[in-house]
């Protein structure tokens, strides 16, 4: 009863469009026509031969690996620092979280300005913008995404760290454990749930990156930072190959699902009950 409205909304806005989307993968719809012709698995066959799509999937994987690792390492280290009793903890927590309040499009334009107009004028940076090179533009995207995400993950890690019962910490101290031993042997195993959540969130948001991709690099230079979602949207909307674009979206969904399930399985295994 209580779940009724939520379930209805979930059904209307997620489940029905999801299955309608699967239906569209089997049509040759161009996104404009009022009629849709059924073409079976033709779009799936086409997507297997679409080198641009698979290239963007490979690029997205590289991006996800870089962002997930850097975000979580930085967020965790900052969380340790900000639970160690240093001055201005609350202020710093709020400060690190702030980038998360800025939308991806705005964030992209802000950082585009920084990369193109600020850093290029500083003597320690090259005159050419980071967004001008294929490799440097990729890392520019990583930097911005990590800058945005780590503040959010930081809060989850802080919650995990402070959520460990002081009884265990006290007991360990009495037994002569050092600070690093307390961290690695007591705190880390007991906060594995935080890792599970943070890895899942960073994985899913990073895989689906589009707004930042569009506003920061527009896929450039030379289409070298065109991630999977941008490739799919171009295919469906710009090139008017909606059916094939939708098939690519479905394939991408399956890939994401597999990766997310593997991640959940691996990290959940390491969780321990207090």
């Amino acid at each position: 009863m209580f779940a009724g409205p939520s379930m209805a909304a979930f059904l209307l806005f997620v489940i029905i469009p999801f299955f309608y989307g699967i239906y569209l993968t089997m049509t040759n719809w161009d996104g404009i026509a009022t009629t849709k012709t059924f073409v079976g698995i033709q779009n799936y066959i086409a997507l297997f031969h679409d080198t641009e799509f698979w290239g963007s999937i490979f690029l997205t994987f590289k991006y996800v690996i870089a962002v997930v690792i850097l975000t979580n390492v930085i967020a965790f280290l900052l969380a340790v620092l900000l639970t160690s009793g240093i001055r201005g903890e609350s202020f710093l927590r709020a400060g690190f979280f702030t980038p998360n309040l800025i939308g991806g499009i705005v964030l992209g334009f802000i950082w585009q300005f920084i990369f193109n107009r600020v850093l290029t004028t500083l003597p320690v940076f090259p005159e050419k913008s980071m967004l001008g090179g294929e490799i440097s533009a990729f890392w520019a995207m990583v930097i911005v995404q990590v800058w945005k995400e780590s503040g959010y993950m930081l809060l989850i890690y802080i919650a995990g760290l402070v959520g460990v019962s002081q009884d265990y910490i006290e007991a360990a101290k009495i037994d002569g454990a050092t600070s690093s031993q307390i961290l690695t042997r007591i705190r880390l195993p007991l906060m594995m749930q935080s890792f599970t959540i943070c890895f899942f969130l960073t994985l899913s948001t990073t895989f689906k990156v589009y707004d930042l991709n569009l506003s920061l690099t527009e896929g450039g230079p030379y289409n070298s930072t065109k991630m999977a979602v941008m490739t799919i949207i171009d295919k469906a909307f710009t090139y008017h190959e909606y059916g094939e674009g939708q098939a690519e979206a479905f394939a991408f969904f399956i890939i994401m699902l597999i990766v997310a399930l593997i991640q959940l399985k691996v990290t959940s295994k390491k969780e321990v009950e207090a």
């Binding site: 979930f10 997620v14 489940i15 999801f18 309608y20 989307g21 569209l24 949207i233 979206a249 997310a260």
Partner: peptide
């Protein structure tokens, strides 16, 4: 939760 969040991508591209 995993399936729901991932499905939302497809749903967004759907209609």
């Amino acid at each position: 939760l995993t399936a729901a969040m991932a499905a939302s991508l497809m749903a967004c591209g759907g209609g």
